[in-house]
Design a protein around this nucleic acid. Structure first.
Lengths: 255, 255
DNA sequence: GAAAGATGTTTGTGATCGACAAACACAAAT
DNA sequence: ATTTGTGTTTGTCGATCACAAACATCTTTC
């Protein structure tokens, strides 16, 4: 396994920093960005006008902003995910049946990426949005996926991302996480019990393709007041497992 | 008005070419991309590993692909558009009431960018997707927006983008376009009569904010068989104008 | 099973190119 | 009118990036 060495292209790194800055600052002028990334105005100016020529950024009355070209590339990347099309419908049904928030997510670069979010009639407001990135260890979706990874791969991810604490219930110890993943594997689905946001519980099941490779995960999230007892222990898991099953069967079929 | 000169950063240009290549080729290896962009393998390799480190691309069994980080930036950019939130609901209602496809779009870099697409019960399949980019001159949405631009701005856009022919009905002459925009302005809404796809008609109205600046446009599209007579001349325009009106009123309100 | 032909990756090197700093143009504010 | 912000442009030198060629792995092929 190579460690992804290779020489880096400094200019590209700078351009990426500038994009990050544009987002953090929610749009900004040349000087502001130059200060933020610690470079000269001239340099930043050249990068921004190059990005502008490539239509990746937009200029609105002396403020540069992230351009909608990213949405073009992003939707392309989203649709490229195998099983996305069928997942969309399945997740909608799941949201409807449960009345809660239903999600579909895939792993990328050691974090979870939310691809589909559908709201049922009683859905609570969750912060996640399409493309949102969250740590894997503190969500049911993430743990569902991690439970299908090899121990080495999980170790690698922990090494690079750590186990940042989100609430008092967040798992922050390696051993504890591995125990949880073991139980998840036995069960076939994962729980998140206020580990990312207090008051919020979640049930998720991994979606595995025909080769045994994990594609992503489906979940339902909701308030602790409704996520308890039999519903939390049996009904919701069943719905979620069912959804995961349908997605993986549909994904195996050619359109 | 400056012509957006400035020195360009060659490495960033190359990185953008590589991203375009990744998309056109729908994922590819180093050699393939190197040939496609006409550079050495080594150079391309360095760019790709830099992009990988920045999590903008993904590597799947010896193929690099556009990463989902673009979706993150893209959704951010989409939500940043003023009036997006209220437009979402309004467009959904419009799709439901009309039973057709309803869209919301904004202009960027001289092209139209589709931001919202909702399908009614009888909706035909249209190719557009969130983030999709199309020329302005051959869609009702585009012409609705152009009708609100100054003549100089329209000239600029034509100069840089041309008037590419999509169907036999596409307007390819400057004068003809300006005539159409004039009529559109008088009417208050725009028509697309098979100008982008044969068999498809469309009605669109511009969304103008409180300062008189055009924000974007709303539309309904459907087959010629249903888009004719009174419905095409009166009913649909009324629905669309109404939707545009609601969006601009909501946009003016603080959340 | 060895050799050939693909990959992706790494290295040294010289020419290019990009960052800096400073000057410039143009605002708005004092 | 002067000051203090912008964004933009320029000359210059040192860093850096692309090339080419070698290297490491794989398949393929005979």
């Amino acid at each position: 396994m190579n460690q992804n060495g290779g020489r880096s292209v400094k200019s590209v790194d700078l351009t990426c920093s500038i994009l990050r800055a544009l987002r953090e600052l929610d749009g900004a002028g040349v000087t502001e960005i130059a200060n933020h990334v610690g470079r000269s105005k001239g340099a930043v100016h050249n990068h921004l006008s190059t990005l502008h020529r490539n239509e990746l950024v937009v200029k609105e009355n002396d403020e540069y902003k992230i351009g909608l070209k990213f949405l073009d590339y992003g939707t392309y990347a989203k649709r490229r995910v195998s099983g996305y099309r069928s997942a969309k419908e399945v997740v909608r049904d799941l949201a409807e049946e449960s009345g809660e928030v239903a999600n579909f997510m895939v792993e990328e670069h050691g974090v979870s990426v939310y691809l589909i979010k559908e709201r049922g009639d009683d859905a609570v407001r969750t912060a996640s949005y399409e493309g949102d990135r969250k740590p894997l260890h503190c969500t049911a979706l993430g743990k569902a996926v991690l439970s299908q990874f090899s121990k080495e791969r999980v170790e690698e991810i922990i090494d690079s991302r750590g186990l940042p604490k989100q609430t008092d219930a967040t798992i922050t110890e390696r051993d504890e996480l591995f125990d949880d993943l073991e139980r998840t594997r036995e069960r076939g689905y994962a729980y998140d019990d206020e580990e990312i946001r207090s008051g919020l519980r979640c049930v998720a099941a991994p979606v595995v393709d025909s080769t045994g490779e994990v594609q992503g995960a489906v979940s339902v999230s909701g308030p602790i007041s409704r996520f308890k007892g039999d519903r939390f222990r049996e009904e919701l898991p069943e719905l979620v497992l069912d959804a995961a099953n349908v997605i993986q069967i549909n994904a195996a079929m050619p359109d």
